[in-house]
Amino acid sequence: MNDESILALVVLEEVRDNVSSGKAPAFYVTTKKEQERVALLVSRIIKAMVHDLENGVYILVKH
């Protein structure tokens, strides 16, 4: 519950403008399938949870 922060973004290329990455790195992907795959891999590595903002942006948050 303490200091939950966005650790990474996985963003579809086509909606690049929906997000501007500050502290967290952004991974740009071209297809929905690739987005799922990258999000899964990164989330397992950094032990974070994948959340879908339903606008083409996935955020990875440590809870």
Partner: peptide, 20 residues
Amino acid sequence: KGSLLLVDNIAIMNVGLQES
């Protein structure tokens, strides 16, 4: 409902991965 997991009408959490 979209990416939101619900039980009854109570939001539990947002699950991003389709596989999950």
